[in-house]
Design a protein around this nucleic acid. Structure first.
Lengths: 309, 309
DNA sequence: CCCGTGACCCAAGCACAGCTTGGGTCTGCT
DNA sequence: AGCAGACCCAAGCTGTGCTTGGGTCACGGG
């Protein structure tokens, strides 16, 4: 950079080349003539070349001057292009958003949100990665995602270094039973009423919601089978191998006609949120994506969570 | 220009992008960290975009920052290219010289000079235009030629607004006679001895040399035919239609074996010069061309004109 | 575990770059 | 001949932009 020509002088010189005289260039720049003359003189000193031939009608460029003016014009064009590109980013005519979302969100409202976003800002490059909340948070922290749709349970505290989180809506947990199960004719129940059942749960890492909820009701669930897949879960339930807890969203994504679901009294719902990296101001594209997700999930918001938002 | 981003800040930003941190960029630039930080901050204010995410390990570019850095790198490259192009011009690896020269010069030493120049500086773009001195001076004044090879006669004063002229050599005038002419057995003669001859001369505009020289000797030449072409002149002479004055250079370019030439006593030679536009410092390429022409015509220089140079 | 290192930020000060002012000269046109 | 419109030079002043000297926050090693 030290050995580079001063680019501001180049711009001044480009104006001189365009105007054909120092005085005209000065007027175009809103300066006085000596100001421009000083720039040109300095440029000639720096380059060691005579750049202009001064005559009584203004100046004419030497070959060196013409060469320099060409480069100067290219720089001007670049500066314009830089501004234009930044405008495109802020106006959402360009830009990228990398979304991460958990499976049942990906299977339900997220595609609608992306469609809405593409409609609002067709120039955006939107990319979705399916990821469970833990993985999604890793992606955000590593800078491999801009925005994540995550969930958490009230009773399971999150990591201490919590990224910025905006609640989207509450996703109530439902008890999933085979049709014809003794509990299946109730409209809702306490979790404790299912204490003696056999359970289908998620992998050891993902079953904490069930085990902590059960522990608070004073029992240890008898977990016989484990899967993180909500389709598999329902198949196992419908086959009579056990009962399960599933969030409403999962059942909305895929519903086995052979199972019955009933509500749970005094049972905390799964909370679905928007998570973004901590302390990073969202880009216009990311903000637009967040808006689209909030708008699409608006109907799901309960009065309580609406007040929070 | 007013609405353009400050290109110097762009260069600073390019360095930040390259270094990955403000402090490292500052070190690379030989500055302190706040200096760089101020530039980046100002750039963010000017663009209205967040360009970098500050974290404890340095900074990472946002999408807008990456876009800007790309343009900044392009500008850096342009500045380098500008310098390189100017160096090429001063080092004679590039550049253009437009030469103008009168016909007999074009037919004799000028091609050799161009060849010498091309050998010394193969990158130069050398262009030759054949032009009589008057036309050549017009080309110089109009900026359509950089250097001219011209001639003039001592007794014919030039235009008052005389461009810069470097004498090259003296080109003696010879009397051209048909073989077997009464004067043909002399080695030299006075012009007055040919006062009663029939003459071949140039066009009315070009015959002034003959008429003024004759007038100073007290006679008016009997001009029967006129041509500016030295080949035609010799053909007319050899056919016996008249005698003529021709410069040595013209006879060197093309010599009709049927004519005899004899020297003239006390007759001013034609002076061949290098002419360049007044008050314009010659470009490196033009200076090199002038050198080549001077070097090539060195052997022609008489002791007197050598002293002048 | 705590401290050191190395990022970052902020505010204030100071120097010089760079623009203006106010002279002057030289063409070229009216 | 005089004026207009180029250019140049020198001196002065303003404001940009770099430095100095503070402080905070994370991460990593003794």
């Amino acid at each position: 950079m030290r050995d580079l020509l001063d680019p501001r002088r180049m711009l001044v010189f480009a104006e001189v080349a365009r105007s054909g005289s120092l005085a005209a260039a000065a007027q175009a720049l809103g300066w006085t003539q000596p100001a421009v003359a000083q720039h040109v003189k300095r440029l000639e000193r720096d380059t060691g070349c005579t750049l202009v031939i001064r005559n009584s009608r203004g100046v004419t460029l030497t070959e060196a001057g013409q060469s320099l003016a060409t480069h100067a014009d290219a720089i001007t064009a670049r500066l314009r292009a830089a501004r234009a590109d930044l405008s495109a980013l802020t106006d959402l005519r360009a830009g990228q958003v990398r979304l991460a979302a958990f499976p049942s969100a990906c299977a339900t409202f997220v595609p609608a949100a992306i469609a809405l976003l593409q409609e609002r800002a067709p120039g955006l490059d939107v990319r979705l990665t399916e990821a469970e909340p833990g993985e999604a948070r890793r992606l955000l922290a590593a800078g491999d995602a801009d925005l994540a749709v995550t969930f958490d349970y009230d009773n399971v505290p999150d990591t201490p270094a919590e990224p910025a989180r905006t609640p989207l809506f509450d996703d109530p947990m439902l008890l999933v039973l085979p049709s014809g199960h003794p509990l299946a004719d109730r409209t809702d129940t306490d979790l404790a009423d299912a204490a003696d059942q056999r359970w289908i749960a998620g992998c050891p890492r993902c079953r904490t919601h069930l085990t902590t909820a059960a522990a608070s009701q004073g029992f240890l669930p008898d977990i016989r089978h484990s899967t993180d897949d909500y389709v598999v879960t329902q198949t196992l339930v419908s086959t009579g191998l056990g009962i399960a807890l599933l969030p409403t969203l999962a059942l909305e994504a895929a519903r086995d006609p052979q199972v019955t679901t009933i509500g749970l009294r005094r049972h905390a719902p799964r909370r679905v949120s928007l998570t973004s990296p901590a302390d990073i101001p969202p880009s216009p594209a990311t903000a637009a994506a967040a808006s689209a997700l909030i708008d699409v999930t608006g109907p799901r918001r309960t009065a309580k969570s609406k007040a929070e938002v």
